[in-house]
Nucleic acid binder design. Structure first.
Lengths: 209, 209
DNA sequence: ATATATTTTAAACATATGTTTGAAGAAAGG
DNA sequence: CCTTTCTTCAAACATATGTTTAAAATATAT
């Protein structure tokens, strides 16, 4: 059994609590008690709560973004006609890879993303577009290629609708999966959920006005 | 110029600030200073911050739910084939009616709904399904009539995807509208946003597997 | 082994929060 | 008018929060 250093213990506890309860409702004392570290170590290792939040998100983005980058560049190199579903499929691999990187990683990442977008007047959006602007542009380009009938503004809106669908679904995935199991006797896991949501958002994005 | 009583002044200020900044990030002192009333009057009139939040939401639900009820019962009585868009259109009237009830009422209500769903581990979700279960069932029935090719389970999932789309979009509507204005020089108001989202969710709900 | 740097710790700090108190003020009823 | 009830107000209260401090403990390097 290997020893986990303080920094990682804080990140793990903070990640889980932020995803479950949101950033504002999670105190440093709650984080440090769950991580079994001293309160002051957060400020020592991260500087402030704000920087801790960024570090939690960064740990996932640093894995997810490169994965998305390679998937997108592969897609953009094929000469075949690109369907919107193919574009969204680019997200599936990198997203599920987060589960290998960390237990329940996919769900946690998507929940954090949702929290970050809704809280703090869209500061996360600014962070992502300034730090990972190229990937966003690349993804946007792929969507435009798949939907030549749509204006850039229409695509902007629909991609944000998509983000809402995914983020909200993942944030309440546990409850939804439980309900589905009780009402329809049907077991669905996180990958099954992704497979269900892709036809929905693909149809939404590609539909004619 | 009529005198507005303290209770209403608090509700108005709280509603605006809750919608803009979320519940956790809005202090009672911020509310009472904007409402120009004494701090203690919140506890006097509402008991606690939690009850104030419920009162703010209830003021809208009491107007919106009956409106939705009548729109749905009208739709369910026609013998014509119902399109999925007709079902979602049932929401538009009651939603826009909130603007007559109160200035910027539609936006405020939808933002509050989004905040309520995302904050506080889905407590609002439980509140609505237990208090307004009949309307939810009626809405569900209309969707089934409009989509006879879909199983009940598939509809269950897609309606929750829809909820996510709407709730997330509205919670971040201010930020999104600002970006659209900056990037595309295009002013979108809340009705415009509703008109944009309905084709998206309608296509998503009705698409074949 | 000693000196240096890094990390951990308990305690204190400053501030912000929701809530309560008790007196003063206003409104209503007889 | 006086009494009673309802409402407002400034102040205090108790607690929770993010952050800082300075000493102790541990690790690192020479």
């Amino acid at each position: 059994m290997q020893k986990i250093d303080t920094k990682t213990k804080i990140l793990n506890a903070a990640e889980q609590l932020f995803a479950e309860r949101g950033f504002a409702d999670t105190s440093l004392r709650l984080i440090t008690s769950q991580a079994e570290v001293n309160l002051a170590s957060v400020n020592y290792h991260f500087g402030s709560k704000k920087e801790l939040i960024q570090a939690v998100l960064a740990r996932y983005l640093e894995v997810f973004i490169p994965g998305l980058e390679t998937a997108l560049s592969e897609l953009n190199e094929t000469d075949e006609r690109i369907d919107q579903r193919n574009v969204f499929e680019c997200l599936v691999g990198p997203l599920l890879a987060l589960n290998a990187f960390k237990h329940r990683g996919t769900t946690a990442f998507l929940q954090l993303l949702g929290r970050g977008y809704v809280e703090n007047q869209g500061h996360l959006r600014w962070f992502i577009t300034t730090h990972y602007g190229e990937v966003m542009d690349s993804f946007n380009q792929a969507v435009q290629n798949a939907n030549p009938h749509l204006s850039k503004e229409e695509i902007f809106w629909r991609l944000h609708f998509t983000l809402g669908t995914v983020v909200f679904t993942m944030a309440s995935s546990k409850a939804l999966i439980d309900i589905a199991k009780a009402d329809f006797k049907n077991e669905v896991d996180i990958e099954g959920l992704i497979r269900k949501v892709i036809p929905f958002i693909s149809a939404g994005v590609s539909t004619a006005k």
